[in-house]
Design a protein around this nucleic acid. Sequence first.
DNA 1: TTAAGTGCAAAATCTTTGCAAATGT
DNA 2: ACATTTGCAAAGATTTTGCACTTAA
Lengths: 138, 138
Amino acid sequence: MLRLEIENIIKSHGLSVTKSRKKVLKYFLKLNKPLDLKTIRSLVNPIDRVTLFRILSCFEKKGIIHSIRLENGQHLYAICKETCRDGQHSHQHIHFTCESCDDVSCLSIDNFPNLSLTNYKFNNININVSGVCQACIF
Amino acid sequence: MLRLEIENIIKSHGLSVTKSRKKVLKYFLKLNKPLDLKTIRSLVNPIDRVTLFRILSCFEKKGIIHSIRLENGQHLYAICKETCRDGQHSHQHIHFTCESCDDVSCLSIDNFPNLSLTNYKFNNININVSGVCQACIF
DNA sequence: TTAAGTGCAAAATCTTTGCAAATGT
DNA sequence: ACATTTGCAAAGATTTTGCACTTAA
């Protein structure tokens, strides 16, 4: 029941359920991988560019999706798996870019590091890794 | 001998030494912290905006500086401490944003993680942390 | 001298704002 | 019915491109 799940996610984050929002969220759930604006646009066509910006920034603020900013300037969005509180994201996964196929994915790793430094308080840790993915390694 | 160090860095990365490049690099060495475009522009005034873009992207490609892209969209540049090969950056430090004073810095940490995942090859690990810095923690 | 770097104008993108019309509750 | 969301037009901001002029080696 994808439809119900979609509506539930939107509602449970305190947002009203609209056609556009459902459409956008549907693709995040369906594809379950980080998407850039161009890709999202082509999928949800013909939602207005500005509306899409607003939906994404609203989803992000509410903790439904999170932004991924890669060192090369790419800006992607991915669905939050953990329960991200309103405006406060916390992910125990890394963002991985394959240097061979350029695919970007959110990966769970067992040994997610617990960093620390004297006299500093670390709240949020965001890790971007590049390398070679499963599919390309052979 | 800052002047000599500057020229040496530029030369040793295979670039010709120009007034503008020296000026830009000078501030990176002097301030020794991540700088955004606006700050750099105001420091190196009156270097043309486009020229500055080209200098920065050239420095980055050659491994003199690296880009820091924060989750909030901020784009900063910082000098590379380690020897970054041409086009291939590798840093054993984290990028830290203080949630209280908004300062961004490159921090060395002892326990820099050695991540791995079966069937993946991890080449480059980039870590952005937000929290409270030394100065604001008290 | 000549290959590389700079400045300017202008294009291409990306992101935000204001407001009237449409939609959700 | 009322508050929220959407689409459109237009402004701002950021980044890139082309080309003539200048500078470093």
